[in-house]
């Protein structure tokens, strides 16, 4: 379970909070979607939960581990799929995965078997020994995912994992994530693809200006929002149609 309590983040020199007094509980084995317009605070929230950013105030714990007291132990329990491909372009898929797996303390035959198994599942086994720089966007996204799940994390954070990929890659990625979830991994996921989120997530929260404006089961939110036929209409009704450009 992830318990977030009054979490806030204000960037140095910024006039407003990116995340403001946000409290949330995500239950075990949930697929939780964090939705919101650009600059709403989704990536900031995920960055804080994955120990990349220091909160200005507030606290959180993951599976009972406090973010400050059990920093290293907590890192062993979580996996992060960043928005950008965090891979070495000049190394092969296998070398990248072997290295990032080793950083979780994995080694030997079991690491090799895990890499091979994941590569097979995500349709990349034939490209194991090709360099990442030769991969398409969809292939890089899949390797990016495998690099974050080799250690079988209890909680997996995904920051727009399907952005810029074709339908086939997206389908394989989401299928694999559902499979992981069925084995017990809690998934926290951000996306601008509301249709995808509506069908993929067990629960979502719409965030705007660093605060949760509504949360619940996607279908319930659609029902609750007058005149809405889908999650996108709920989203627009809750966050407005004004452009969100920040610099």
């Amino acid at each position: 379970m992830i318990q977030i309590d009054q979490l806030s983040k204000k960037y140095k020199g910024a006039d407003f909070y990116a995340v403001k007094d946000l409290s949330l509980i995500v239950h075990e084995k949930e697929i939780f979607g964090l939705l919101g317009p650009n600059g709403a605070g989704k990536t900031t929230l995920i960055s804080m939960l994955s120990s990349l950013l220091k909160p200005t105030s507030g606290s959180f714990s993951i599976n009972g581990l406090d973010f400050q007291e059990s920093k290293n132990e907590l890192k062993q329990h979580i996996g992060i799929v960043p928005q950008d491909y965090a891979l070495y372009p000049s190394l092969t898929a296998f070398e990248n995965l072997h290295y990032f797996g080793s950083m979780y303390g994995l080694k030997g035959d079991s690491l090799q078997e895990d890499i091979v198994s994941n590569l097979k599942t995500l349709g990349l086994y034939d490209f194991a020994h090709k360099r990442i720089r030769t991969f398409s966007g969809g292939m890089k996204r899949r390797i990016n995912l495998i690099a974050s799940i080799l250690h079988e994390p209890k909680v997996l954070f995904l920051d727009e994992p399907t952005v810029g990929v074709d339908v086939q890659s997206k389908s394989v990625i989401l299928e694999h994530l559902k499979n992981l979830n069925s084995k017990g991994t809690t998934i926290i996921y951000t996306s601008h693809h509301l249709n995808e989120a509506e069908h993929f997530c067990t629960r979502v929260a719409i965030i705007d200006h660093g605060k949760i404006v509504c949360k619940g089961i996607p279908q319930d939110l659609v029902v609750e929002q007058k005149g809405a036929n889908n999650l996108e209409e709920v989203f627009l009704a809750r966050t407005g149609k004004a452009l969100r450009d920040y610099a």
Binding site: S50, S51, L52, K75, I78, I80, P82, D84, Y85, A86, L87, Y88, P89, F100, M103, A147, S148
Partner: peptide, 9 residues
């Protein structure tokens, strides 16, 4: 490349 960010996590 973002690999440092991954290492930080």
């Amino acid at each position: 490349q973002g690999t440092f960010i991954r290492l930080r996590t």
